[in-house]
Write a protein that binds this DNA or RNA. Structure first.
Length: 264
DNA sequence: TGAGTATGTTCAG
DNA sequence: TGAACCTACTCAT
């Protein structure tokens, strides 16, 4: 479930579980055997993250992980662990915890120059305390691309994906198809402020929840009886949480965008 | 059992 | 712009 909030969540988990301990690493699936051998028995020194990129710091190396669309971590608590699945790219463990990584787009050993190179290609990450949206605003304000495309561009804002795109645009009552240059500055400021708030909330909860308490009505449950967590994302065939209008969909920036034609 | 879908990125053309 | 790639889950047959 990898947008920026998940990466922050996983970073925090690894920090708590492994920081300042010596870890064992192996690659059950075999596609990262050399890397796992190099990391094995190193001191785990800390974590950093920017947007959807996770960096695990070891005493000699940095492990760069990007989960892509399918990647995930499975956590196991010791002192005795279940064996990792055969599909696990990497298991990291100490005496008390194990994390199993499967399906990542990237799992590679880099150095600090490599880390800086990757981060330099990314826009500000709203989840960071010192993130500055000024450059992102300048890029949006100059662009003839739609705001729905721009929000998916990691070099403008890092960490937003298809769910947050749909929800942030809904919360600012903005159509995904408005060109960036026609987005008012106060609307962009609203999108940014909500991204800061919702990415942090998602990182804390470990899942995306964008719906305000006043909209969390008892009847707002999905087919499985679970509470409603999104206003528009994947609500095709159901009504907008606020006004009841059927949710529209269209491909935009290679992904399906969801919006309410009345509210936005 | 197989098709379809998914919160993403990169590279070829 | 489209295809390729990585995995797990749901739904229809």
């Amino acid at each position: 479930m990898p947008e920026g909030h998940s990466i922050r969540h996983y970073a925090d988990m690894h920090e708590k579980a492994f920081a300042n301990t010596r870890v064992a690493t192996l690659s059950p699936q075999g596609r990262f055997s050399d890397g796992a051998a190099k990391l094995n028995n190193q001191l785990f020194t800390g974590v950093s993250a920017h947007g959807k990129h996770l960096f695990l710091h070891f005493e000699e190396d940095i492990l760069h992980i990007h989960l892509g669309l399918y990647g995930s971590f499975t956590w196991r608590r010791g002192p005795s662990f279940e064996s990792p699945k055969e599909t696990a790219r990497l298991r990291i463990s100490n005496e008390m915890f194990a994390s199993d990584l499967s399906g990542p787009t990237a799992c590679e050993i880099i150095d600090d120059a490599g880390r800086q190179s990757k981060v330099s290609k990314l826009g500000p990450d709203p989840i960071h305390d010192n993130a500055n949206p000024d450059d992102a605003w300048v890029k949006v304000h100059k662009s003839s691309k739609t705001i729905g495309e721009l929000l998916m561009d990691q070099s403008i804002i890092a960490g937003i994906g298809n769910v947050y795109r749909a929800e942030l645009l809904f919360l600012s009552n903005t159509s995904p198809f408005v060109p960036g240059k026609y987005v008012p500055q106060e609307v962009f400021a609203d999108i940014w402020a909500n991204s800061v708030r919702l990415l942090r909330l998602g990182a804390k909860d470990g899942r995306i929840n964008t719906v305000s308490p006043e909209h969390l009505q008892g009847e707002e449950v999905d087919l499985h009886g679970r509470m409603q967590y999104n206003y528009v994302y994947k609500r095709t065939g159901r009504g907008c949480v606020v006004c009841g209008t059927a949710i529209s969909t269209a491909p935009l920036a290679g992904r399906t965008v969801y919006w309410c034609e009345t509210c936005q």
